[in-house]
Design a protein around this nucleic acid. Structure first.
Length: 121
DNA sequence: GACTTGACTCATT
DNA sequence: GAATGAGCCAAGT
């Protein structure tokens, strides 16, 4: 995977926001995209998280305080956990570990946060 | 360098 | 409400 400066900035912004989602709360891909100024890039946010382990190590983001990214706190705008091979179940489990109410693949709205304060990244 | 894929979203039906 | 389809754009092939 080749990372030019622009995509590095995109990934960094995504991780910076995701890393600030409070324990026990979740938000959506689209909201992350909106916060970093790329509202049309929700899919890229997901892609970014998918490759986060590799990218974080490539960019030495651990030095910037970004590690153990809480990717499981990012869900669909519909309030459900996104479908994929089977990682969805681990995501549900991790959320329940944080006392987030998960009914099937649907997350309780009380835990669905909107974090406009996170814009300053 | 063109074509496909995808951890998405929104408007429409 | 649920289902469908078009739009989106960085990564992967």
């Amino acid at each position: 995977m080749r990372l030019d400066e622009e995509s590095k900035a995109f990934h960094y912004a995504v991780y910076a926001v995701v890393g600030q989602i409070p324990y026990g709360k979740v938000t959506s891909y689209g909201h992350i995209a909106y916060l970093i100024g790329r509202p049309k890039n929700a899919r890229q946010v997901g892609s970014s998280l998918k490759h986060s382990e590799y990218i974080v190590s490539q960019l030495n983001l651990e030095d910037a305080g970004i590690s153990d990214l809480p990717w499981w706190r990012v869900i669909l705008s519909a309030g459900t956990i996104s479908k994929r091979d089977s990682g969805e179940y681990e995501q549900a489990r991790r959320l329940q570990d944080e006392k987030v109410v998960v009914d099937g693949m649907k997350v309780d709205l009380d835990d669905f946060g909107w974090f406009p304060d996170l814009v300053d990244i």
